[in-house]
Design a protein around this nucleic acid. Structure first.
Lengths: 166, 166
DNA sequence: TGTGGACCCATGTTATCCCATGACTTCCCA
DNA sequence: TGGGAAGTCATGGGATAACATGGGTCCACA
């Protein structure tokens, strides 16, 4: 399993292009290895809970959409879910230099200007305006700690499990 | 199981490189033996509780991240935890000389200058500014004594907790 | 024919690889 | 038991490749 790790800052040029950070490109190449050639390896999506862009490797996005198959095509549920999933989603493919073009609506939603930040979230990554990203990371640290989602709150089990497990 | 023991001091050069202490390299080689080739054997992470860098062998890091798999990809918990866990984490790989480059943001967080201290914590290790490391060790000794955390009373789990947890 | 997008080439900067050196430790043999 | 001799280790610096970024050109579509 490949992962998106770390935070990287790149520039958004006048044409709306950004270089995808090299480590993310590498992870993407591995994740998309099974995909058919020609298919867009990346899906950009408007994030619902934050002012940022979500970037999904094709494989992950398809897994996300899988539950749709089980719904009646003409049901309201299907309609709602499908529009939520697909309506604000854009397939993109890095060019030869490793850059992608960010759609205007997504740039607006994330409030992007000159510099953009790529934030690794494991299976996916997000694209943020730098200062908003900084705030978000601080907030996430705080909330994760408050809810006991870190090592600190459950050291024993996690560590013992870590040893026995992988 | 291999362990990181002891405290070592090395120099951080102008390029942001440090030699990983030889004993730690050896422990790392053993710990990463089962990992896939090409994958970074070490993940550097911004420590949340202290002004230092946490260094996780790949296997340990994956175990740390395992609880994430059980969370709904769209839940806020997942979002917070993934951000806290991955956004401040950087995969690194020692070069032929056994050196790693420390990312700028992590250098800043730990307040590193010319000399850095590697502190063994058993399953993981930490990277500190020398004086901060000294203070931290004194504090840890004091707190451990105050709580009566001795070898006798505290079997494996408690010791691990005392070291790696807070 | 004008406009926008995709493709291509060019360049400065940064990071990565590779070799060299000095201090120190360990080992071996006289 | 002393005195090399060989290896390990940390560290410095230069060469090379990767990367991010800017700008130009061609084609499609309106």
């Amino acid at each position: 399993m490949t992962h998106f790790l770390g935070t990287h800052q790149n520039r958004l040029d006048l044409k709306g292009r950004v270089s995808v950070p090299a480590p993310f490109r590498a992870a993407l190449r591995l994740a998309g290895g099974t995909e058919a050639a020609g298919a867009a390896p990346l899906v950009l999506r408007r994030a619902h809970q934050h002012p940022c862009i979500e970037a999904w490797p094709a494989a992950e996005f398809h897994a996300l959409a899988a539950p749709l198959q089980r719904l009646d095509l003409f049901s309201e549920d299907h309609d709602d879910l499908a529009s939520a999933l697909y309506a604000d989603a854009f397939p993109v493919e890095p060019d030869k230099e490793g850059r992608i073009v960010l759609p205007d609506t997504l740039i607006a939603h994330a409030g992007l200007t000159e510099a953009v930040v790529f934030m690794g979230l494991g299976r996916i990554f997000q694209i943020w305006e730098p200062q908003a990203a900084e705030r978000r990371r601080a907030e996430a640290r705080e909330r994760a700690r408050a809810r006991g989602l870190t090592l600190r709150q459950a050291p024993t089990e996690s560590l013992v499990q870590a040893g026995a497990g992988e």
